[in-house]
Design a protein around this nucleic acid. Structure first.
Lengths: 203, 203
DNA sequence: GTTTTCACCGTCAGCTCTGACGGTGAAAAC
DNA sequence: GTTTTCACCGTCAGAGCTGACGGTGAAAAC
């Protein structure tokens, strides 16, 4: 039997879940309160009972979406075969995670947040909260040995930005490229950067 | 004296210009037909005379926005002091161009295009049309000597994706970082990649 | 000089979205 | 057993957006 508190929590969670689902599947613009209410199979009143304003709903959804992506990274890590070269493996895990539709939704929100102050506030709060976990996951993806190398922080920064660039460019590609020699190239470069004692080869 | 054809062309151009202006300043969601009409100081009828549907307006605006970014890259190239190290100079020119608000608007559209098929079609067409010019501008930014090196195509690809990643991440930063050691690091890495005869140091 | 074209005008219908509001019935408190 | 709380309901007003439509006056065609 469900108590009232349980019911409340369950409905709340379901609303946030379908809001995230809508953001991922239908995008930011199409994720209206009516759409969320429809997906959740709730009345208008029920939705507004839990989230009096759209902003509150989106704030919760954005936080959940960021958690969602962390989870996706852990999944990709778990799914990756552990026997390959660790650098290439790490780079590819990050690449696969960045190809998830949920990450596309996240980047779409970052783009929209450029001119949407409320959304920007919500996003910053969500990303700030997940930052430590994000770094922990990335360290786990590359493993402790690689994470200890001197050039590692810069490599992670560059790799993350690169993955974001590739992800936001995805809409432009006519067809999805399964083969991505660029990623292999990048893995080779990273291997070189982490092998050298210093990150700056000349200068 | 303006003939009717001139008038038509001038109004058409003005509408597209203010549409781009609105996309850059106010973002995708806020760029409604009413907003464009208001910015252009035109009546509803005038706007609909030139652009019967919002889609046609956006298609024209998207094409113009892409041209706009090419122009911005040329400006940054012209504004960059020519006496520095050519690799660092090229990387920084690309970085400065990617920090322009117009590029932010472009990336926002790429994000929205993920779930908006019409927008995606317009964007692909615009980017396809500008591709050759884009590569020409980038070659000019790095100069013919660097562009001839064997690793150059991959370096350009990686650099472009990196800049996109940094640009889409811009909304998240609490304050604008004027100093960007990451870019200098990247320039150093690029210098190393272009110095070597092969791009793949080991393997 | 008459007719036609057309760049531009203003209003309006139809739609969707947001959030307000007054219920309702069952669980929880007393 | 009575009262209170509250999760959920359905309707509606207000606002904004898109695109249709019937003008209007001046340039262009004849």
């Amino acid at each position: 039997m469900t108590t009232r508190d349980d019911q409340r929590a369950a409905t709340y969670r379901r609303i946030v879940d379908v809001a995230v689902e809508s953001l991922v599947e239908s995008g930011f613009a199409a994720t209206t309160t009516v759409e969320v209410q429809r997906r959740a199979g709730l009345s208008r009143g029920a939705l507004l009972h839990h989230f009096p304003t759209k902003e509150q709903l989106f704030t919760a959804a954005v936080h959940r979406l960021v958690e969602f992506h962390l989870e996706a990274m852990r999944e990709e890590l778990a799914a990756a075969p552990p026997d390959t070269d660790p650098v290439a493996r790490g780079v590819w895990v990050l690449r696969r995670a960045s190809r998830r539709p949920s990450f596309g939704a996240e980047l779409e929100l970052w783009g929209a947040a450029r001119t949407d102050e409320r959304l920007r506030t919500a996003l910053r709060s969500a990303e700030r909260g997940a930052l430590a976990e994000l770094h922990a996951v990335i360290d786990a993806i590359f493993g402790p040995e690689i994470a200890a190398r001197p050039g590692y922080p810069i490599v992670v920064d560059l790799t993350v930005q690169l993955m974001r660039g590739l992800a936001i460019s995805a809409s432009l590609q006519e067809r999805v490229r399964e083969e991505e020699p660029l990623i292999d190239h990048w893995a080779d470069i990273v291997r070189g950067l982490l092998a050298a004692d210093t990150v700056r080869p000349d200068s």
